[in-house]
């Protein structure tokens, strides 16, 4: 009797036992946890602790240093801009990829994933080659007094390249899941295209696009490889926070670097939590 109720009550544990066996279970699980602690938790904790090691006033001084503050503002500004552009263009791209039928659609859809596989440094090189000052596009724009590479537009382009898949891939499945009949119902009831979009698509797409847009902002504020190549890294102009951090490391000021890193880390975590919160909320509503 007791044995039986035990077996029923501990179904989870039985399955778990079945997967990581016996006494090895704890050891293997402990190994995974230890790996993650050593690789992630301890170094990042060290970073944050050392950022404050010289006292909070010094920390504040370091992050409000003119160059540092400007780099942080630029990084956050471009990050938010890129997030917004991603929401807009990413949704449009997903729309076209799921709802249009044209030759080469499959190839184009696969290409959208390419930034996941291309090294970001290579992305930067590609952007610099196309839009650099000596390129065809670059000289054309220079004639109108517009700089792309070694200027802010270059940063935005590089960030857009690197974060391209975020919103597209988040929105696509949501779009595919929307019932065509719901759209048709709205049309038959007399709704125009905007009304249909507002009623049927917008509420469904918004959480996915928004959370992915936030994730792309989070990704953008940490971006280094592509920025280093295209930005020119001019203080007060095109010096982003990660590049500033790198510069401080190079010039032997790791604690100043740690201070600015900590600020970046806080923003990144806030964005991560925000995006996760939106996804959870939507998930919970779907489950009901």
């Amino acid at each position: 009797m007791t044995a039986r109720s035990n077996a029923e009550g501990s179904e989870h544990v039985r399955t778990a036992d079945a997967l990581l066996p016996g006494p090895g279970q704890r050891a293997l699980r402990g190994l995974a946890l230890a790996y993650v602690l050593v690789l992630v938790a301890i170094p990042l904790a060290t970073l944050v602790v050392l950022a404050f090691a010289d006292g909070p006033p010094v920390f504040v001084e370091r992050v409000t240093d003119e160059v540092a503050r400007d780099a942080l503002v630029l990084t956050l500004g471009t990050g938010v801009l890129v997030g917004a552009l991603n929401v807009l263009f990413g949704t449009a791209t997903a729309w076209v990829l799921t709802r249009y039928r044209f030759p080469g659609r499959g190839a184009l859809s696969a290409l959208v994933d390419l930034p996941l596989a291309v090294p970001t440094l290579v992305a930067g090189v590609m952007i610099a080659v196309l839009y650099g000052p000596s390129s065809l596009v670059g000289t054309t724009f220079a004639a109108w007094d517009v700089e792309i590479v070694f200027a802010k537009p270059g940063i935005v382009l590089a960030l857009l390249f690197v974060t391209l898949p975020f919103v597209v891939r988040a929105v696509e499945p949501v779009l595919a899941e929307i019932d065509v009949a719901e759209e048709e119902a709205a049309i038959v009831l007399g709704a125009g295209p905007w009304r249909v979009f507002r009623t049927v698509f917008f509420p469904a797409l918004l959480p996915a696009a928004l959370s992915a847009g936030i994730r792309s902002t989070g990704r953008a504020i940490g971006e280094f490889g592509s920025i280093v190549v295209v930005a020119g890294n001019i203080p007060f102009e095109t010096l982003t926070a990660p590049v500033y951090v790198f510069g401080e490391i190079e010039s032997g000021a790791p604690r100043a670097a740690a201070a600015v890193s900590t600020v970046l880390l806080v923003f990144a975590l806030a964005l991560y939590v925000g995006a996760t919160w939106i996804e959870r909320k939507v998930g919970a509503r779907h489950a009901s």
Partner: peptide
């Protein structure tokens, strides 16, 4: 156009607007 026909249509799987 479907929009201008002023027809009532009831879909098999309801097709209610789930956000309204």
């Amino acid at each position: 156009h479907a929009r201008a026909r002023a027809i009532g249509f009831v879909f098999q799987h309801y097709a209610l607007f789930r956000h309204l």
